[in-house]
Simulated scan of single mutants.
Amino acid sequence: MAIAEVTIIPIGTASTSLSHYVAHMQRVLAQQEGISYELTSMSTIIEGPLERVLEVIRVLHESTFEAGAARVSTSIKIDDRRDREASSQQKLQSVQAKLSQSLDN
């Protein structure tokens, strides 16, 4: 399963506010099958099979044009671990477990 962090930035809009575009992309994500996703304050995390995640990112990129952007910049970070199952939540739990360990370990 791949974990992707995606930031899609509409450029050439009439406003400095982007929340309209973010809300639109979240609606588009809600219609996508075969993935899970989480909105963060600075990006969206998408999890699923790599091929599907990449398809969904393309759909999001295109939907931003459909929402009125004249130019779109998309940044993607992908963590594709194949030695064992991983998720965004599991990664956070792993760090939390290490934070709770004594400093002596």
Rank of each mutant, 00 (worst) to 15 (best):
A70P: 00
G48L: 04
M1P: 11
R71I: 05
N105Q: 13
I57E: 06
S75D: 11
L54W: 03
T44W: 04
E33M: 09
E38W: 01
V53C: 15
Q31Y: 00
K91A: 14
N105I: 14
Q96V: 12
L18C: 01
G48H: 07
G48F: 11
V95N: 02
S100C: 02
G48N: 02
I11G: 01
I45S: 05
K77G: 01
V6S: 06
T7Y: 10
L92E: 07
T13N: 07
I9W: 05
Q90E: 13
Q31H: 08
V56K: 08
S102K: 04
I57D: 02
H61W: 08
M42F: 14
I45C: 07
S102A: 08
P49Y: 08
S43V: 04
T40G: 08
S73R: 06
V95Y: 12
V6A: 14
V95K: 05
S94H: 13
K91T: 11
L50D: 04
A97Q: 15
P49H: 06
V53P: 09
R84V: 03
S43Q: 10
T44Y: 08
P10E: 05
S87P: 07
R52G: 00
H24E: 06
G48E: 01
L92H: 09
H24L: 03
S63H: 11
Y37T: 10
E51K: 11
S17Q: 13
L29M: 07
T64N: 10
S63A: 15
L60P: 01
D79V: 05
P10G: 08
L60T: 00
I35D: 12
R27D: 15
K98W: 04
H61C: 13
P49C: 01
A30I: 00
T44D: 01
E51L: 09
L92D: 00
G48K: 01
I78Q: 04
L103P: 02
A23F: 05
S17M: 07
Y21D: 05
I45A: 04
Y21W: 05
R82Y: 13
A30E: 11
K98S: 09
A4Y: 05
K91M: 12
H61A: 08
I76N: 03
A23G: 00
D104A: 14
Q32D: 04
A86Q: 08
M42N: 09
T16G: 09
K98G: 01
V6L: 14
Q93L: 14
I8L: 13
S75G: 09
E38M: 10
L60V: 00
I3R: 01
E66S: 11
S36N: 06
R27E: 15
V59E: 12
S94L: 10
T13E: 15
F65T: 00
S36C: 06
V95W: 12
S15P: 00
A86S: 10
Q26R: 03
D83V: 02
A69M: 09
R58V: 03
S100N: 10
S75R: 12
E47L: 02
L29Q: 09
R52P: 01
R71D: 13
A4D: 10
A70L: 14
D80Y: 15
L92N: 02
T74L: 03
S41Q: 03
A97G: 10
D104S: 15
Q101A: 14
M25A: 15
V72A: 00
G34D: 11
L103Q: 13
R84A: 11
T74P: 07
S63Y: 07
S73D: 11
V53E: 04
P10F: 12
V28D: 02
A86G: 02
E33Y: 06
E85R: 06
M42Q: 06
D83H: 03
